[in-house]
Design a protein around this nucleic acid. Sequence first.
DNA 1: GCATCTACCCCATTATCGTT
DNA 2: AACGATAATGGGGTAGATGC
Length: 273
Amino acid sequence: MEYFMVPAQKVPSLQHFRKTEKEVIGGLCSLANIPLTPRRRARRIRREIANSNERRRMQSINSGFQSLKTLIPHSDGEKLSKAAILQQTAEYIFALEQEKTRLLQQNSQLKRFIQEFSGSSPKRRRGAEEKDEGIGSPDILEEEKTDDLRREMVELRQQLDKERSVRMMLEESSPAPTHHPTVIVPAPAPAPPPHHVTVVTMGPASVINTASTSRQNLDTIVQAIQHIESIQERVGEEEQRRAVIVTQGRALTDTAGSDTASDSEWPEDCSLP
DNA sequence: GCATCTACCCCATTATCGTT
DNA sequence: AACGATAATGGGGTAGATGC
């Protein structure tokens, strides 16, 4: 994180970064020891960088899938393909929306009951009595109405308790959604113009954005170097193995004419001018 | 305005690995 | 062995930035 805190004067401009990038690329080529024309060499490096970027992109997509997986109810250790994760997420959202609608309806129903109860205040009741005077027995009607409401209230309360217990059961059976830290992928927001950007003039978020972009570029190059190094290592190991075989006087005749690992690794580059 | 570069996205292909 | 899922890779398309 120290990387992001460097004072503006000490932060190299992207122009400078490009220069160092070229140096790194030059180093990469010499490191790989590949007999390439400069154009092909550059192309090769660009491809490595593109591959690294693509790898990172896929990783971010996968981390998104993992985040989704933690949010949908599923049993621990259950294997879910990406397609299954998407489908189940859609189903889960649909179910949640339905439940929300149902709860909202229930809520408004309860509100209506409350209003009716508070509405049947002594004052209003008295008025009703005056109006109904002589027509029948208002007290009995009022009692019936109250009984009905009471019954409905009890039913609703039972329904609510039932819902609650079902929900508790569901929560216990399915793992609680754990919010693992997800890989934060820089938003595809247009990056500020490289040459006009200094850390001084930008807000903290922009600083992090630009710095993280540079950091990512560096990471990409480092990954490319590591990739080429690993290829070299494999080639070296292969050569060592062959040397051992030769010194032991048990060299295989077909080994001499076979392609090297590097040949198969760089087919296009070595076969074309 | 145009050519070039770069980053990003998308797709097809291939390799690998686990499951049936 | 067949099959499905996934990762890696190569290559094309495109939008935005930049230099001329």
